Measured scan of single mutants.
Amino acid sequence: ITGDVSAANKDAIRKQMDAAASKGDVETYRKLKAKLKGIR
């Protein structure tokens, strides 16, 4: 179950990262990237 949750989280975070990148929001992008590392 835990694996599914983190996989879903990663997917959601990647989508947020894409949105931040397209807006040029480097700050948010970095925060999300750090979150991704924390999940692993």
Score class of each variant (00 low, 15 high):
Ile39Gln: 07
Ser6Phe: 05
Gly38Trp: 08
Asp25Arg: 00
Arg14Pro: 02
Asn9Ser: 12
Ile1Trp: 12
Val26Phe: 15
Met17Ile: 04
Ser22Glu: 09
Arg40Phe: 14
Val5Ser: 11
Ala12Gly: 05
Lys10Met: 14
Asp18Thr: 09
Lys31Tyr: 05
Lys35Ile: 15
Ala7Asn: 07
Ser22Ala: 14
Val5Asp: 08
Gly24Asp: 03
Val5Thr: 09
Met17Phe: 01
Lys31Asn: 02
Ala19Thr: 06
Ala21Gln: 07
Val26Ile: 13
Asp25Val: 00
Lys33Arg: 07
Ala12Ile: 09
Gly3Pro: 09
Ala19Gln: 07
Val26Gly: 04
Ala21Cys: 15
Ala7Lys: 10
Ala12His: 07
Ala21Glu: 04
Ser22Thr: 08
Ile13Val: 04
Arg30Asp: 15
Asp18Trp: 14
Lys10Glu: 14
Ala34Ile: 06
Ala7His: 10
Gln16Pro: 01
Asp4Ala: 11
Leu32Pro: 00
Ser22Gly: 05
Leu36Gln: 02
Lys10Thr: 11
Asp4Gly: 09
Ile39Gly: 06
Ile1His: 12
Ser22Tyr: 03
Leu36Pro: 00
Ala19Val: 13
Gln16Ile: 05
Ala19Trp: 06
Asp4Glu: 11
Thr2Val: 11
Lys35Thr: 04
Lys31Thr: 02
Ser6His: 11
Asp11Asn: 10
Arg14Gly: 02
Asp11Gly: 06
Ile1Val: 10
Val5Trp: 09
Ala8His: 13
Ala12Arg: 07
Thr2Asn: 11
Thr28Leu: 14
Met17Arg: 01
Met17Asn: 01
Val5Gly: 10
Gln16Trp: 06
Lys10Leu: 15
Ala7Leu: 10
Lys23Phe: 04
Ile39Asp: 06
Ile1Met: 08
Ala7Gly: 09
Ser22Asp: 06
Ala34Asn: 07
Leu36Glu: 01
Arg40Lys: 11
Lys33Tyr: 07
Ala12Val: 07
Lys31Trp: 02
Val5Pro: 09
Lys15Asp: 04
Lys23Trp: 03
Ser6Tyr: 04
Thr2Ile: 10
Met17Cys: 13
Ser22Ile: 10
Gly24Ala: 03
Lys37Glu: 15
Arg30Phe: 06
Ala20Phe: 01
Ser6Glu: 10
Arg14Asp: 03
Val5Lys: 10
Thr2Ala: 10
Ala20Leu: 02
Gly3Asp: 10
Ala20Cys: 04
Asp25Lys: 00
Met17Glu: 00
Asp4Met: 10
Asp25His: 00
Leu32Gly: 03
Asp25Leu: 02
Ala12Lys: 07
Thr28Ser: 07
Lys35Ser: 07
Ile39Tyr: 06
Arg14Met: 08
Gly38Glu: 14
Ala8Arg: 12
Ser6Thr: 11
Ile1Phe: 11
Ala12Phe: 11
Asp25Tyr: 00
Tyr29Thr: 09
Leu36Lys: 02
Ala7Asp: 10
Asn9Met: 14
Tyr29Asp: 13
Asp18Pro: 00
Lys33Gln: 08
Ala7Arg: 12
Lys10Ser: 08
Lys10Gly: 07
Lys15Gln: 09
Lys23Ser: 07
Lys37Tyr: 03
Ala20Thr: 02
Met17Ser: 01
Lys15Gly: 04
Tyr29Phe: 05
Ile1Ser: 09
Tyr29His: 09
Gly3Ala: 10
Asp18Glu: 14
Asp18Gly: 04
Arg40His: 10
Ala8Gly: 09
Tyr29Leu: 14
Gly24His: 04
Ser6Leu: 12
Arg30Gly: 03
Lys23Asp: 05
Gly3Tyr: 04
Ser6Val: 10
Gly24Pro: 00
Ala19Ser: 05
Ala7Ile: 12
Lys31Val: 00
Ala12Asn: 08
Asp25Met: 01
Ala21Trp: 15
Glu27Arg: 05
Thr2Asp: 07
Met17Leu: 04
Arg40Pro: 10
Lys10Pro: 09
Thr28Ala: 13
Ala7Met: 12
Met17Thr: 01
Asp11Ser: 10
Arg30Met: 13
Lys35Met: 15
Gly38Ile: 06
Lys31Pro: 00
Lys33Trp: 06
Gln16Val: 03
Arg40Tyr: 12
Asp25Glu: 01
Thr2Leu: 08
Lys33Cys: 15
Lys15Arg: 11
Met17Trp: 00
Glu27Phe: 00
Ala20Asn: 01
Arg14Ser: 03
Ile1Arg: 08
Lys37Gln: 12
Lys23His: 05
Ala8Glu: 09
Ile13Trp: 04
Ala19His: 05
Lys15Tyr: 04
Ala21Met: 14
Val26Ser: 07
Ala34Lys: 08
Lys10Phe: 14
Val5Ala: 06
Lys31Ile: 04
Lys33Phe: 05
Ala34Arg: 08
Ala34His: 06
Gly3Ile: 11
Ala8Phe: 09
Ala34Glu: 12
Lys33Gly: 01
Ile39Phe: 08
Arg30Lys: 09
Lys35Asp: 02
Asp25Thr: 00
Ala19Phe: 08
Ile1Thr: 08
Leu32Val: 01
Ile1Glu: 09
Val26His: 12
Asp18His: 13
Asn9Tyr: 15
Ile13Asn: 03
Gly24Asn: 04
Asp11Gln: 10
Val26Gln: 07
Leu36Asp: 01
Ala20Val: 01
Tyr29Ser: 07
Asn9Leu: 15
Asn9Pro: 05
Ala8Asn: 11
Tyr29Pro: 04
Asp25Asn: 00
Asp18Asn: 09
Ala20Ile: 01
Lys33Asp: 05
Val26Asn: 09
Lys35Ala: 08
Lys15Trp: 03
Lys31Arg: 07
Gln16Asp: 03
Leu32Ile: 03
Glu27Gly: 01
Lys15Glu: 06
Ala20Lys: 01
Ser22Leu: 14
Glu27Tyr: 02
Asp25Gly: 00
Ile13Lys: 01
Arg40Glu: 14
